[in-house]
Design a protein around this nucleic acid. Structure first.
Lengths: 133, 133
DNA sequence: ACTTCTATTGAGATTCAATCCTATTATGCT
DNA sequence: AGCATAATAGGATTGAATCTCAATAGAAGT
């Protein structure tokens, strides 16, 4: 089986994800990493985010426009603001029994499910109300 | 307020979505529509899928690699096969009380949530087992 | 039918996230 | 130190989705 090496670049990417709690996109992580070493290529950041998500050290969150990465590795749900694009954690427990039930009824082998609540964050809701909805 | 016109192209797109139960992507709908009228442009198909989803006549389903469209307009959950990319309806009721609870606890104004179960469909699960997992 | 208004279209250009390509580098093991 | 190969840099490429804008055609009124 394929060995995984511990490269300086991979460490920098992992540190960059762990330094943020706001669910950054790959490009945002790329900017952060390049502040420490401007020579790191975009492809390397994308590749390492995938490797780290695959190995369970971080979480990959699918979101509209651009996927996000999350220092919280255990499965949980997210909120997405349709206006400003912000992503936040949702205060609901992961329903793993749904995975079992769906697997049983459909014959799929379920790895997990992703849930994203779409709406307006408090700040954007306020702005929208000022302009008469 | 802006009026919505009933164009031939929009009708063709709506009919194309209603003619399928397998959650086609925008490009697949584009191919279907062009079988009836080859002069319809890709932009028109994408625009009309958005218009129809906005007005609640069809549903827009966010999925990895390409979004899908669904003749079932009421909110429900989906399955996604990580191997072949197929999308299917999930046999679970939509939990609208989750929207209320999350709104209350976060201050977000929630429009809806999307849930997608990721795994292997029965056909792909079988193929994977043949090659020793 | 004719006119007017403007939503919509067609065709191509553009955007942008994400992946791929390949010669070169550097990690982990012995 | 030497080897095998995983990983990188840099740039090219893909592909979904949106945008641009002159031209077209719904819809409502006359």
């Amino acid at each position: 089986m394929r060995q995984i090496r511990n490269t300086r670049q991979r460490q920098l990417v992992l540190e960059a994800v762990r330094a943020r709690t706001d669910h950054p996109s790959a490009d945002e992580i790329c900017l952060d990493v390049r502040r420490k070493d401007p020579r790191i290529s975009r492809g390397t950041v994308y590749r390492n985010l995938n490797v780290l998500a695959e190995s369970g050290e971080i979480a990959h969150v699918e979101a509209p426009s651009a996927d996000r990465y999350d220092l919280r590795a255990e499965p949980h749900y997210h909120l997405y603001c349709l206006s400003c694009g912000a992503v936040a954690d949702a205060p609901l427990p992961y329903q793993s029994e749904d995975d079992r039930r769906v697997a049983e009824e459909t014959g799929f082998e379920i790895r997990r499910h992703q849930t994203i609540f779409e709406g307006l964050c408090p700040a954007c809701r306020e702005k929208a109300e000022q302009f008469g909805q």
